[in-house]
Write a protein that binds this DNA or RNA. Structure first.
Lengths: 204, 204
DNA sequence: TTCCCGCACGAACGATCGTTAGGTTGACCG
DNA sequence: CGGTCAACCTAACGATCGTTCGTGCGGGAA
């Protein structure tokens, strides 16, 4: 049946450890979740974790970096230049919302516990995040050049859209798939409305 | 000169302790910042902190609750009904951005470290936050009835606007006052643009 | 002056933390 | 069969945590 009897009989593989750790970090916070907590969740003694990871810090890093890497692999292509800026933004937003929903725990860990990492481990993660943000800003700027968007500052607009979506990822729990898709569509609408009218909605 | 010689000669009052604690909690996180860290910052021995607060948990609560209370006191009145919905939203956003900038550390602590509190201490803080969110949603709904806004769901729109602004509060560091005011105006524009066009920007 | 008490102190408590050392198991390879 | 090695174990290390205890000081009241 299974490939080998040496394989973990239950969910005790390296990836399972990362997943359980992510869930605990998301629920209790990085510092409040102990190695003993993680070990108990995986049904393993604390010392056994050190056969797979050199430190607790490294576990956090792998969760954060792995998430952001997969995130960029899945979401970034949606912003490719052969799409209209509006379609690209909508697709990216939908992809981000779907992805963030699929990896619920890791979203929270990557955004809220990243600061527990030393600077040199934060850097590669921040670089990935910046890459996505720049791509979003470039798409918005393209939309402005084509006259479909109008914003005072594309980079600022990208931050606003990203904050809006990542905020959603912190509280929105869809009932089912259609609920999720509806929310993705609505947030696409919201972002497009903002990007279209921002420049014209000057106060006073 | 001073009112009394019994007063703290330097910044060692109860409020100073809360302020230093907030800064440490914001920088290192609630769990990573120890009572000894706080004591050192205030130039006091750790045990002395317990003459002012019964526990570390209580310090966190007073920071979070005090912030949200002052927040509502300052920002909520901007949403009063004798203003046009658009003006109310703009004023509230400006007020929130200014207030959050003035209380930089506490914003971060109240939003990111609140979960370290037990449920019964989170409840009153959440109630205050919900009060603000409901007021924002009511203002948006009023704007829809008056025909100036168009959104599929006022509560969802309120969450989107709030997430956008609180996201800003986590990364935006203004150079000076005019920089801050310009950002407040721009985010007001962004929110108004979104609330106006959301309903009309349906995809497909 | 004497008493009082708010406030800060030094020292230590027990608990829990991340991590390590050393031993045991058992599937695989020659 | 005997050797190898990854994986897991038990036990414990030193450090640090939040917190408590008993004491000392010093200004205001009596």
């Amino acid at each position: 049946m299974t490939a080998s009897l040496r394989d973990r009989p239950e969910g005790r593989s390296r990836d399972d450890m990362l997943e359980h750790a992510a869930r605990l970090f998301a629920e209790k916070g990085y510092d409040a979740a102990s190695m003993r907590d993680i070990a108990e969740e995986v049904a393993v003694r604390p010392s056994s974790l050190y056969h797979h990871f050199p430190s607790k810090e490294r576990i956090l890093f792998e969760i954060c970096y792995g998430f952001q890497r997969d995130f960029n692999l899945e979401v970034l292509p949606e912003l490719r230049a052969d799409r209209s800026p509006e379609a690209a933004i909508r697709a990216a937003i939908r992809s981000e919302i779907l992805f963030s929903n699929r990896r619920w725990s890791q979203v929270r860990v990557a955004s809220r516990e990243r600061r527990s990492l030393p600077r040199e481990l934060q850097a590669p993660i921040n670089a990935l995040r910046r890459q996505y943000r720049d791509a979003m800003a470039a798409t918005i700027e393209r939309g402005c050049r084509e006259g479909v968007f109008s914003v005072p500052d594309p980079k600022l607009a990208a931050m606003a859209v990203l904050d809006m979506i990542s905020g959603l990822g912190h509280w929105f729990k869809p009932r089912d798939r259609s609920d999720l898709e509806r929310m993705a569509a609505r947030y696409g609408d919201a972002a497009v409305a903002m990007l279209r009218g921002w420049g014209a909605a000057t106060a006073g």
